[in-house]
């Protein structure tokens, strides 16, 4: 199988005053192309920090992180920005849509930073909104959309650059249960189409949709042995 990324012995520490706070402790993780992975952990377990490192928003204190063959630990800000743009599609708990931009303008944002010409951008953005089932909401502002619709706009924005990984941080956290399930089901569909997906969550139900689930507790990552796997 194709490795999308490998994490070897990743540690991350923060310094608060004179005290060293170890947030991630010797994390090892290999993710293969086409996998649907969930990382399950309570708040304060270090799961957000792990997500930031996977998403190239942060660099590890020690250890080696290789994404699509690039050693992330050794790259600078500008390269990180380009890697985020090309390799990662972010979906956040609170959507983070820009309130003044319409649905399609929000979706086109990452394309602006990839340097795609204007007419192509709109075409791609509209196409992607069509795929997430929002063809009739192209020109709506975020506040004219429901929570589920907003999250689907955010998913369209994450997918528009055709990233290597779709990285979702509590994607259902701000949604009611029914809408949340529909979003997760949409992730499932995307995964079946071949997209590599990583979901970070504290919700065991959400995590159960993934092929593989990892638990993170007190900065240590361990793979959950599935009941189905045992059988």
């Amino acid at each position: 199988m194709n490795e999308i990324f490998t994490m070897e012995d990743i540690c991350k520490s923060y310094y608060t005053g004179y005290e060293e706070l170890k947030v991630l402790k010797h994390v090892n993780l290999i993710v293969y192309k086409g996998e649907f992975i969930s990382i399950l952990g309570p708040s304060g377990s270090g799961k957000s920090t792990l997500m930031n490192i996977i998403g190239c928003l942060d660099t590890p204190t020690s250890g080696k992180y290789t994404l699509s063959g690039i050693n992330i630990s050794e790259t600078d800000d500008i390269q990180l920005a380009k890697i985020r743009n090309k390799e990662i599609g972010f979906v956040f708990q609170s959507f983070f849509l820009l309130p003044r931009l319409t649905a399609w303008q929000n979706v086109e944002l990452p394309l602006i930073y990839s340097g795609i010409p204007k007419n192509k951008r709109k075409e791609k953005a509209v196409d992607m909104l069509h795929k997430v089932g929002l063809s009739d909401k192209i020109n709506n502002l975020p506040n004219q959309l429901s929570g589920g619709q907003q999250q689907r706009v955010a998913i369209a924005r994450a997918l528009v650059t055709d990233p290597t990984i779709l990285l979702a941080d509590e994607p259902t956290g701000a949604l009611d249960q029914k809408t949340g399930i529909s979003i997760i089901k949409y992730f499932e569909k995307l995964n079946k189409e071949g997209k590599t997906i990583i979901i970070i969550t504290h919700d065991i139900n959400v995590a159960s949709y993934a092929n593989r689930t990892f638990n993170i507790l007190d900065g240590k990552l361990s793979e959950q042995v599935r009941f189905s796997n045992v059988l």
Partner: peptide, 16 residues
């Protein structure tokens, strides 16, 4: 701040 963070997450370079 949030907008700036988001733009950076989406791939905006410091220069942009």
């Amino acid at each position: 701040t949030t907008e700036i963070g988001l733009r950076k997450a989406l791939g905006a370079t410091p220069f942009a």
